[in-house]
Design a protein around this nucleic acid. Structure first.
Lengths: 152, 152
DNA sequence: AAACCATTCGACAAACGGGTCGAATAGACG
DNA sequence: CGTCTATTCGACCCGTTTGTCGAATGGTTT
């Protein structure tokens, strides 16, 4: 399957559960419960996000986890790179070791262009976009339900 | 790493070693040696290519393996699907289970378009293109060497 | 200082893809 | 029919990713 790692998916999902304005900081276990990710595993993921400067954390009583910056300042590509590594987009589509402009596979020129597009999109999208997208979805579902119950 | 599987890479590499016009059919171990793929592993890969109708094989004395069709009739996407499954391009980029037009992640619309482009390219390229590409490379290297040795 | 508690660390289990090995199978020849 | 031989099949090993568990760490509060 041509996808990013499971961990990266979990990270985006969990971070988009951490909107501002609520009582914060929050705990790993609560966020895990909210977004349906295994808590112990999410703890590991969060550590990487802390190391990457995307999250800040405090231990002990009154400890917890918080976004290091406003959601609009956190790009999706940062999250992906924190988990899958900076080179997650560098390889040949076919996984060949040697695939440069000189010694290329037939898909090289094509994939080279595509990689730029993908990186660009992940760079353009911020966590704020992801959150807004989720909220728009949630509102749409609510109003659909309201209409449905009104007509019932 | 965002790539297809290693097996798919091996498959394309091995199949592009199987030009027509030579003494054929050929043996897995010879092809493996020619393209630098582990022989026992390539045997497994070839079985899948046989099942997919891309190769034909015969066992025993005077047995061997051959392309089921002319290279120009074998699309790269067929090879990839034989190894990585028909659904290798179906998932959400972030690997989410639920990511359709209704319940999408923010990258869904973008990735949906990209997938079409990628599938299109893999469909457009045939094994003949891959072979021609390799040969053009080999010739270019040869003539570079000829020039180098002539000027020496 | 002692109690408390969320993060952090390390060891470990399960699942998966990649890779190896040897035996089983079956087609062609003598 | 028996032998030869290349594919095929099944069992197994290894490394990585995913996921769990319990103990260690260190900041807060009382």
């Amino acid at each position: 399957m041509l996808t990013l790692s499971n961990s990266a998916s979990y990270a985006v999902k969990a971070l988009s559960c951490m909107q501002e304005g609520e009582d914060r900081p929050r705990f790993v276990k609560d966020i895990a419960a909210a977004c349906g990710v295994p808590p112990a595993y999410l703890a590991k993921i969060f550590k990487k996000l802390v190391d990457a400067g995307i999250l800040v954390s405090k231990r002990g009583w009154a400890g917890g986890t918080d976004l290091a910056r406003a959601p609009g300042e956190i790009r999706v590509i940062e999250i992906v790179e924190a988990l899958d590594g900076k080179e997650f987009l560098e390889g040949c589509l076919l996984g060949n070791e040697i695939c440069s402009d000189e010694r290329a596979c037939p898909l090289h020129q094509f994939w080279k262009r595509e990689r730029v597009l993908i990186a660009g999109e992940l760079h353009k999208q911020t966590l704020a976009d992801v959150i807004a997208f989720e909220e728009r979805r949630a509102r749409a579902r609510q109003s659909r339900q309201a209409i449905a119950s009104a007509s019932a």
